[in-house]
């Protein structure tokens, strides 16, 4: 969905597998809310398409994760995956933030997700939004207090 050129992302199979596993743990699907997880095929494809500016740091993060779990994250039992990712987040908050940002940027524009949080599936322009004017009389006490700036002469 991003207007940036897709370009060659060329994640390896292991990187894709690890990334998808990370996404599933980060934002899982919820049957109760009727929302997909961040590892949903459509969202995952969107993330892969949109990740160019972070390609190399995402790669770094995935390598660190796989190293922490002694091989491929996806091959571990669910509880071990969770443990490994918890350790990763504690040790590498910067890299963790890269993955979170890459995931959230795409997850929170998916039509199904937008509907579930009460947002219309549309860009802000051209319809815009309504904002209340608010109660301007709240400024009366500020006026009553009088001038607060200093004389400079």
């Amino acid at each position: 969905m991003t207007t940036a050129e897709p370009g060659p992302v060329d994640f390896s199979d292991l990187e894709r597998e690890t990334l998808r596993c990370v996404l599933r743990h980060m934002i899982p699907a919820s049957a109760e809310l009727g929302v997909p997880g961040a590892d949903d095929p459509l969202i995952f494809a969107d993330i892969l398409r949109s990740i160019q500016r972070d390609r190399w740091r995402v790669g770094d993060a995935l390598r660190v994760i796989d190293a922490l779990c002694g091989g491929g994250l996806a091959g571990l039992a669910d509880s071990d995956q969770e443990k490994c990712l918890s350790e990763f987040r504690a040790l590498h908050p910067g890299l963790s933030g890269i993955l979170e940002s890459a995931a959230a940027r795409c997850y929170y524009r998916d039509d199904r997700v937008m509907a579930s949080i009460g947002m219309e599936a549309r860009p802000p322009f051209p319809l815009g939004y309504q904002v209340d004017q608010g109660d301007w009389s709240l400024l009366d006490p500020v006026r009553a207090r009088g001038r607060i700036y200093r004389d400079a002469s």
């Binding site: 980060m26 934002i27 899982p28 919820s30 933030g97 940002s101 940027r105 929170y108």
Partner: peptide, 22 residues
């Protein structure tokens, strides 16, 4: 917006990974 709210929330430790995210 929702993406920024999620990114900041996770960075600030207010939004966890996992089932508690939503």
């Amino acid at each position: 917006g929702p993406a920024r709210a999620a990114i900041n929330g996770m960075a600030d430790g207010l939004i966890p990974w996992g089932q508690g995210h939503h």
